[in-house]
């Protein structure tokens, strides 16, 4: 009998599936609790709001998928969003002062491009240090978090910058009743899902996340692939930042603080392993992000105080990674 048939019979994968579904079962319980505590939770309009609120970070989780697929991590996602949004906010203020009409397609496009550029620069620095100089990803991106936020606060003098009264808002722009944020997110989801699954780069990234030596022996440019992953993540986080700023209307010095700790557990929940080589964007990362945001939304509907969010998110991260680690056979650190 072939090995694959033997496996199907034995159901050798069942163990982890049971636990995985166990995690989702907890979510089910949470949703039931949410629906009971606030009857507006399950309404269509709330679900619409939920999906809309997920849109910016959806780009973040897409970017994180690439980095995690390679076995790395990017803890600077939140600060990346912040500094990109801050730069854009400063530019908007400057341009408006010069009499430029902000509320135009061309300017909006330019703002997005700049946000992606700033994010990409952060990604380049991360990528060079990690890919070329072999720095440990979580230490490098941890340092980058501090540096990026510090620079961001420096250039803004840690002041709040309001942009929706200067002509830059995304929250009110709709097409056929659906927010433009959702359209943007969908476009990026499709583009990057395609890249991850259907491009040579994507399959090489998945391969090298699993077996770095074999990938190198086969002549894959693992350095370049890692480098590109961090650039993708950086650029997408930059875009996520400007999307989030466009949605909320302002950029404060604590903007997007801790967002990496929403994005990363969202990815893990969506089946993207911290250890590399596993997962996909559609449906995995998307579902993971929606789950995380549903929790946020539900908690808001329950009128939860701020600290509850961090506690619940902490617990989710713990559980999700606990399951992810079950099959881990490497060293304990």
């Amino acid at each position: 009998m072939s090995e694959s048939k033997k496996l199907k019979k034995k159901g050798g994968l069942e163990n982890s599936l049971v636990f995985k579904y166990g995690v989702y079962f907890i979510f089910l319980l949470m949703f039931i609790a949410f629906s009971f505590s606030n009857k507006n939770f399950l309404t269509l309009s709330n679900i619409g709001v939920l999906i809309q609120q997920s849109a910016p970070l959806m780009l973040g989780v897409i970017g994180m998928t690439f980095v995690m697929m390679d076995g790395g991590i990017d803890i600077s996602a939140g600060s990346n969003m912040y500094i990109s949004a801050a730069v854009c906010a400063l530019l908007i203020t400057k341009w408006r002062a010069q009499g430029v009409e902000i509320e135009s397609f061309g300017i909006y496009l330019a703002i997005f491009a700049i946000a992606a550029l700033v994010g990409a620069v952060i990604g380049v620095i991360n990528g060079v240090m990690i890919a070329k100089y072999k720095m440990v990803p979580f230490i490098m991106t941890l340092i980058m978090t501090k540096i990026a936020r510090g620079i961001g606060m420096y250039i803004t003098n840690a002041k709040l910058i309001i942009i929706n009264n200067q002509g830059f808002t995304l929250s009110d722009k709709r097409l056929f009743g659906i927010s433009i944020l959702i359209y943007i997110a969908v476009v990026f989801i499709l583009i990057f899902h395609f890249i991850l699954r259907y491009s040579r780069y994507g399959i090489q990234l998945k391969a090298q996340g699993n077996n770095h030596e074999a990938a190198q022996k086969m002549g894959f440019n693992t350095l370049r692939n890692t480098f590109v992953a961090y650039i993708i993540c950086g650029a997408l986080c930059g875009l996520a930042g400007v999307m989030a700023a466009g949605a909320t209307g302002s950029v404060a010095s604590a903007f997007a603080e801790g967002n990496e700790f929403i994005i990363i557990p969202a990815a893990v929940l969506g089946g993207i392993s911290l250890f590399g080589g596993k997962g996909n964007i559609l449906p995995g990362a998307i579902i993971g992000m929606l789950l995380m945001n549903t929790v946020t939304n539900g908690l808001t509907m329950m009128g939860a105080t701020p600290y509850v969010y961090t506690i619940v998110r902490g617990a989710i991260i713990f559980l999700a990674v606990m399951v992810d680690s079950m099959n881990y056979k490497g060293e304990l650190r």
Partner: peptide, 20 residues
């Protein structure tokens, strides 16, 4: 001895990863 295969990919993907 250490095979250059990727244990997270399918047989087909391993066979053709250099020749997609």
């Amino acid at each position: 001895q250490e095979l250059n295969l990727f244990s997270n990919l399918s047989i087909a993907e391993n066979l053709y990863i250099d020749n997609l």
